[in-house]
Amino acid sequence: MSQSQQPEQRRQVLSVSVSDVRYFAALLRGVGFVTRATVTITNDGFTVTVEEARTLLATAFVFKDMFEEYTYHPEPLQLQSQPAQGSQQTINSVAFEIPLNTLIECLNIFGTSSVSTASKTKKWKQNAEDGGMEYDNDRTGPLDRYFPSSGKGTAMRMSYDGTGHPLTLHIAEDAAGPTATCQITTYDPEPQLELPFDDKAINPPPRNRAPRAPSKPILRIHAAGPFGSCEMDYPNDREVLENFECEEPVTLSYKLSHISRAIRALQNSTKTSLRIDNEGFLCLQLLMPSPGPRGGNSEAFTEFRCLPLDEIHV
């Protein structure tokens, strides 16, 4: 209500538009195992973060290049009635909580964001193999990549007016068809689980990269349960592991139900980076497919951070 009365002062905090929501929906679906997610908006894009059992933290990084249009105006501080408890931080970022499953369902309101992602996966793989950026095989014109491939893509315009306002989505399949307007209630953000990953601890200096005895497995993933156990050994081969660095043998256990949360995102990802720091803290970064270069850093990725179960065995 207030924004209509004061159109000059009350600008939209976030306004994005995209002609094909499939990449965006796939990104959200990868972390869509918890209903409540925290969205943090910055100048370069926004992150969608969920946590489970205070152990697993999954973040989808959505960069602004994924959208055709991305405008972000930091919330004017004077309009907020809150005291300036965190004013220094809120200048650069806005955070709110949102029911993530509702958002995903809204994106799929025409049924076109999920069906096509399954078939799209192959095309993504093809594109990755070809190294080309064609959107579709039979349409290779330079401009075609800016349009939805099959004409079925769902276009979306999303806007957020600031604290206390709903997230508004305008979704349409094509210009002549029906348009859906969804308003999703936002909530004040809960304090987030802080899992700082020690980036320095995982990058050993090059002198430590001594070749290992070939008999020992380089990377072993082991799972055990009441119906048996399973382990997978991966050698340090360029064909298998693009890059592998390990200072000393280490064995760590994680709860499988937490790790398997990443499966959904893993199935869609094109490249995976797995890192474990000195405290056994696992960081899994999944490179997600993105629509193509529109300049700059267009690669979206999802990050999973998980705390280990046991003490570190060194």
């Binding site: 497995p217 119906f227 048996g228 156990s229 399973c230 382990e231 997978m232 050994d233 991966y234 050698p235 081969d237 064909e239 298998v240």
Partner: peptide
Amino acid sequence: CKHGVVKTHRLP
């Protein structure tokens, strides 16, 4: 498997 990947399953 190829490239020396070994997958071991143990069933009771």
